[in-house]
Design a protein around this nucleic acid. Structure first.
Lengths: 201, 201
DNA sequence: AATGAAAGCGGACCGCGGTCCGTTTGACCC
DNA sequence: GGGTCAAACGGACCGCGGTCCGCTTTCATT
C-alpha cells in the first residue's frame, strides 16, 4: 500500500531506497524465522533452515540481519509489540491510570513472566549487549518514567537499569533452578522496588 | 607434595582416585589455558590451541573440562582467588574491620572494577548460568552476609542477588558504551545499596 | 528497447566447538 | 613379569555460524 503514495510524494523516500527483491526477501526470511521459532523453539532454528524455508540462500539471510542474534532480535521484537502496547495503553495497573508505584510493581511481575516465556528467544537474541535491544530500551525508559512519577530523586536512568537487572532471564532462571519459587522472586523484587521508590514523596 | 602423604594416609583418598596421566594432563591443560589467556586474551584462545600447547589431543581437553565455558570457568577461578582472599582477610574497608555498610560500598566498587578487568574471561566462562560459577556464589554469599550485618530485614539471598545483578559485565559495559562515566555508575550503585540497607537499624 | 552500473544473490568454503570410537596406558592382581 | 580391564587418549569427523566472490537482477537513463 505505500506504493500508491510513491508517485505523489517522490521527495520523501528517495535517499536509500532498497531494491524490491531485497525487501521481498527480507520479509520472507523474517516470516520464515517467526514460523520456525514458533514451531521448533529458538535453539533448534539454524540459519540454514531459515534460509531454506524462505527460499533464499544463506548469504542473503546474513546480509539482511547481520548474524543469528540480529535475526533473533528482530523475531523477538515482533513478539514483544503486543506487550509493549499493553504497558503503554492497556488496563491498569500495568497500563496508565493506576498509582505509579502500583504500576511499577505490576510491571515487574509482568516483565518477569514475559522474560521466562520468551527465555530462549531472549538468550538467542542476546549478544554481549542484550541491553541495546529495543525491548530492553523500552523497559528501561518506562521504569525510569515511573520512578520519576514516584518522586524518586537520584540518577534515574541508572537506577532504572539497576531495577531491571535482577529480572534478567539468566538470573531468574538460576534462582528457579536453585529452588526459589516464582512468587518469592516476585516478592523480593517488589520489596526492592519499594525500597528504591520509598526515598521520596 | 601431597604425594608424600599418600602412603601414610592410604585410607582417605582411595574412592575415586584418578589415573596419574589424567591428573598430569588436566594440569598441563589448565596451565596452557592460563598462559594463553594471559597472552592473547580469552576470545582468541581456541580449544585446539590449548590442546596443542598442552601437548594433548582435543578430546582430552573436552573430557576434563566439559566444554569451553568449563575450561574458562576454571581459568577465571584461578584469577579470582587473590581478590577473594582480600575480601575475606584483606585491608578495610574491603576486608573485615570496617562498618558493614562501608564494606558493602567498597565491595561494589571493587567488584565492578574486577568485572571490567576480567570482562572477556567472565563472558567466555558464562554459560546460560553465569551465576553458578564459584566466583558469583562467593560474591552473593558475601553481600548477603554484609546485608545481614547491616540489620536488613527481608529476603536476604534474593536481595543480595538483586544488588549483584547491576554489576554484571554486560550491563556495565553497555552503560559505559552509552556514555555514563564509571564514577557515576559506582555512585548510582552506592545509592542503590544505601537504599536497600537503609530500611533497618 | 538497449545499456551500464551497482545492489543483491547464493552456495562453496572456512574455522571452531563438540562428539565418537578404535587404540593406548596405567593400575591392580596373580 | 604377565594378564586383565577399565580409564583415558587423540584425531578424524560433524554441524553450525559466518565470509567471500563470481554471477544475476533491478533500475535509472537514454
Amino acid at each position: 500500500m505505500p506504493d500508491a503514495e510513491r508517485p505523489l510524494l517522490p521527495l520523501l523516500d528517495d535517499p536509500p531506497r532498497q531494491r524490491r527483491d531485497a525487501a521481498r526477501n527480507r520479509d520472507a526470511v523474517l516470516q520464515a524465522a517467526l514460523c520456525l521459532v514458533a514451531r521448533e523453539g529458538a535453539p533448534a532454528v539454524t540459519m540454514e533452515s531459515v534460509a531454506e524455508a524462505a527460499g533464499v540462500g544463506k548469504g542473503t539471510v546474513f546480509r539482511r540481519f547481520g548474524n543469528r542474534q540480529g535475526l533473533m532480535a528482530e523475531v523477538l521484537h515482533q513478539s514483544e509489540l503486543e506487550w509493549q502496547a499493553s504497558v503503554i495503553g492497556g488496563e491498569p495497573p500495568l497500563g496508565p491510570g493506576a498509582e505509579p508505584l502500583a504500576r511499577l510493581l505490576a510491571f515487574g511481575r509482568s516483565r518477569l513472566e514475559l522474560n521466562l516465556r520468551h527465555a530462549d528467544l531472549i538468550e538467542a537474541a542476546a549478544g554481549g549487549d542484550r541491553r541495546s535491544h529495543p525491548a530492553w530500551a523500552f523497559a528501561a525508559l518506562h521504569v525510569r518514567h515511573l520512578l520519576g512519577e514516584c518522586g524518586v530523586a537520584g540518577d534515574l536512568p541508572l537506577l532504572a537499569t539497576a531495577l531491571l537487572a535482577p529480572l534478567d532471564v539468566t538470573i531468574v532462571r538460576q534462582q528457579l533452578r536453585e529452588g526459589y519459587p516464582a512468587d518469592r522472586i516476585v516478592a523480593a523484587w517488589s520489596d526492592l522496588a519499594r525500597r528504591v521508590a520509598a526515598a521520596a514523596d
